[in-house]
Design a protein around this nucleic acid. Structure first.
Lengths: 343, 343
DNA sequence: GGCGATTTCGTTACCGGTCACGTTCTACCA
DNA sequence: TGGTAGAACGTGACCGGTAACGAAATCGCC
């Protein structure tokens, strides 16, 4: 009413405005905002009143300039609209926000490489405190290594493979469990429908398939890896996968490719799992409702993203602490798409 | 070699450092960086050399403080890991980055409302220049309206419905086309498996279904809307949807619910589309590979997100221009899940 | 060579906070 | 009542850029 200071002064009120109105110095206001106490009740009240009256909001920009902390992180990866990467980002994003950081998510398009370099020098930007990169291709992996920033970088692969991945029966990817499940059912000729070879994840799964077959005393079949993770590519690659003949089970590199493969089988009149068993990888929420419901390996993407982000934040806030992320293990999920081979 | 300034001075070089090394004033460096020209070749060279030598990177923070432009936007929505919202964000994100903005993506959890208020006052933050919100529930819609910020806000609904949505044969949602497709095939008892009623999108689709039925001279059946967009919920709701009896076609509120519904039908020995036709909505990439491939309505989510973002940026940069987004129209996609009703 | 008009450049202030330090006030005790 | 420790508060500088303005250098032309 009185005074005539409009409520919405353009450009917002500063601590100096607040200080003037409260009859104190800007430093006192700053102290109040820092919440450290040490204000006399009278001044505290006046500051609070002025703050409210002017609808003060702090300027993170100015604060950042003074403290050289920005609380900004960046995350990048391919195909962030997919279930896996998407959930990962969601997990990461929640952790970041809870810790007071904001997250710039940069979704790369596999097609255009120019975008990659753009995005990368965006990261070279010195007001980003840390970088999280997910499920990279090797091109991205290399690019990240060449990153000229001293901000910490966390790269999430499908699993942090130990030095000797398959020693001691350790199966970090869960592919062994999948293959073992099939061999236990009696399958011998088990094919692998691989993911795009440029992806580290796809290569890891191919390796794991071959290793698991050898471990079971079986000869791995030539891996068909012409796909791009999509259902379309699974459908297209299906004939080639089945070409060797006598195949009774197929391990697809992910659930979506398995879906495409299954449609092709249906169209050929090949029954699942009576004639051919199909298993996937990822356990997307829809996999339980495929026809038939898909046996697959469950990955808790959200937890993976969250763990990676926790690790990144620890690297920033406590550089001396060892903060390697601990990712949850993949778990085999048995459903109706796998069964004993035909006689 | 000479001089002894280490290449990696902590905290980075400033334009003052560069200016000193180049023997010019900081303002000259600033001018060079602004790219406006007007430097003598000699000075230009010296500045360039110093820039490179010191590995200078500009501080966006300081620039923001001086210009009061932050080039930061925020986007928020539910279930960003889903195909639709995910692609939308991807489209928005690309446009934003191309225009020089960075995008904070905030993924809300439908469960916890506390998160919403947290996120919201994060937006009240005055260094965010604009807000994009997608596919909101009405709770979010209300919350956004109460937002105390003078930054522009763009809210994306499924379609920007005109004043009188169904006049003049206009069908902004594509649901009419879907229903008409079914009636043309001869269906009369067409049910709707609705989305979660709290979602504006779900309500719009329910309305459109009922209106389309009336337009075809048919009585809409009671809508079952107990789902949550998931395949699981489609599966669970299936018996109730089919309960009225004699139903020969079902319009699901989205593809995932259609997937769950179809699994239930398979389990009951009901053939699709021989006994019952099923159609979805969204056209997720996998829909073409369901069994059978799903008739649905295609939405170009990426284009929608991009259009919304362009609109937001226009609102920021040219406040006087009318920048209402123009979204692409949904398109009917015919596949094998719909066919004539049984005799 | 001298003059004015343009370019080119430097000086100073400012954005909105925090930090370091010095001053004032209060409270307690001799 | 005076002295003093410690809390409360204010002053000035600084973070790293940009904006505004005036000074200096350059150019063209007579």
């Amino acid at each position: 009413m009185s005074g005539g200071t409009g409520t919405a002064d353009k450009r917002g009120a500063t601590i100096y405005d607040v200080a003037r109105m409260a009859g104190v110095s800007h430093q006192t206001v700053s102290r109040y905002l820092a919440g450290k106490g040490g204000l006399r009740p009278r001044n505290r009240e006046r500051v609070e009143a002025a703050l409210k009256e002017l609808n003060y909001r702090r300027s993170h920009i100015a604060r950042s300039l003074a403290t050289s902390r920005t609380y900004r992180l960046a995350a990048l990866g391919y195909e962030l609209s997919g279930t896996g990467p998407g959930k990962m980002m969601q997990g990461a994003s929640e952790v970041a926000r809870a810790a007071g950081y904001s997250l710039d998510i940069i979704s790369l398009d596999p097609v255009s490489d120019s975008e990659l370099s753009d995005a990368l020098d965006l990261l070279g930007n010195r007001d980003i405190e840390g970088v999280l990169a997910t499920a990279p291709t090797e091109a991205l992996d290399r690019a990240l290594k060449g990153l000229t920033t001293d901000a910490p970088v966390v790269v999430v692969r499908d699993a942090d493979l130990p030095e000797r991945p398959y020693a001691d029966g350790v199966d970090p990817l869960g592919v062994h469990a999948l293959v073992q499940h099939l061999t236990t059912l009696g399958h011998r000729r088990i094919a692998h429908l691989g993911g795009p070879p440029a992806w580290v994840a796809a290569r890891q799964r191919i390796d794991a398939y071959e290793h698991a077959m050898h471990a079971a005393g079986l000869e791995p079949l030539p891996v068909v890896a012409t796909g791009d993770w999509s259902a379309q590519s699974g459908y297209a690659a299906a004939p080639e996968v089945l070409a060797p003949g006598g195949i009774t089970a197929v391990v697809a590199a992910n659930d979506r490719m398995a879906l495409g493969l299954m449609l092709w089988l249906h169209e050929q009149g090949i029954a699942i799992p009576r004639d051919v068993s199909v298993v996937g990888y990822d356990d997307v929420p829809e996999a339980a409702f495929f026809h038939p419901p898909l046996t697959t390996v469950h990955l808790d993407f959200q937890a993976i993203g969250a763990a990676a982000m926790r690790s990144l934040i620890t690297m920033i806030e406590q550089p001396d602490v060892d903060a390697r992320p601990r990712f949850p293990s993949p778990e085999l999920v048995l459903r109706a798409s796998s069964g004993p081979p035909p006689q």
